[in-house]
Design a protein around this nucleic acid. Structure first.
Length: 196
DNA sequence: AGCACGATGCTCT
DNA sequence: GAGCATCGTGCTT
């Protein structure tokens, strides 16, 4: 069952936690890949970690101000794409960064090819996409998908998944935002460590 | 297993 | 012109 606007038009912190165990479906790149979402981070205009801090809208971060249910895709470090799910109501800048996905069995050969070509890959497929840029590479996600809807008829969608219990979730500070000052310590990162 | 570093180009001041 | 919501390699323990 596809998640819809009622799911995404809620606070980023809530959506980040509830996305654990849900399934990202990408038809970008011409073939379908699916991933169980295992790690997320929330971002919000009220804190310095967010690209849209202070509610300042720019050409890059504009999608973060859309109503929840679209993608925010941006480019960083000269070579990497990052996929976020936009959350909340229109006019407020917030989103959830997808950091780790566990590829589902039917797409394993394609995911392996996209990530490693003919080279060697880790034994455990759960380590193939354990980083935001690894996930976008495996899902063939790039800048043209910025602002695109998360919808069953679109290239990207998110399906409801199994419930993930509190005992299987590790909460902690977000990665790579030292510039955010005290906001860098906010416990807005969620990792599902139960499912293996 | 862990750390250091280079790659590489877009974004914003 | 500086810095970045990162990754892979290659070197050290």
């Amino acid at each position: 069952m596809a998640l819809d606007a009622t799911f995404f038009r809620r606070p980023a912190l809530t959506v980040a936690r509830e996305l654990l165990g849900c399934v990202l479906v990408s038809r970008a790149g011409g073939d379908e890949t699916r991933f169980v979402i295992a790690e997320t981070e929330a971002y919000h205009e009220s804190e310095r970690g967010a690209h849209c801090f202070g509610g300042r809208k720019t050409a890059r971060n504009a999608a973060m101000f859309e109503a929840g249910g679209v993608a925010y895709v941006y480019f960083t470090y000269g070579m990497h794409w990052m996929l976020n799910v936009v959350t909340g109501e229109a006019g407020t800048g917030e989103a959830v960064l997808l950091r780790t996905g566990w590829p589902l069995a039917d797409g394993l050969p394609l995911v392996r090819q996209r990530r490693f070509g003919d080279g060697k890959a880790p034994r455990d497929p759960c380590r193939w996409c354990d980083g935001p840029a690894k996930l976008t590479q495996a899902a063939a996600i790039e800048g043209s998908l910025n602002g695109s809807p998360l919808h069953p008829d679109a290239l990207l969608q998110v399906l409801a998944g199994e419930a993930v219990g509190e005992s299987e979730v590790v909460v902690g500070p977000r990665v790579g935002i030292d510039y955010a000052g005290t906001d860098a310590a906010l416990p807005w990162r969620f990792r599902w460590v139960g499912g293996r």
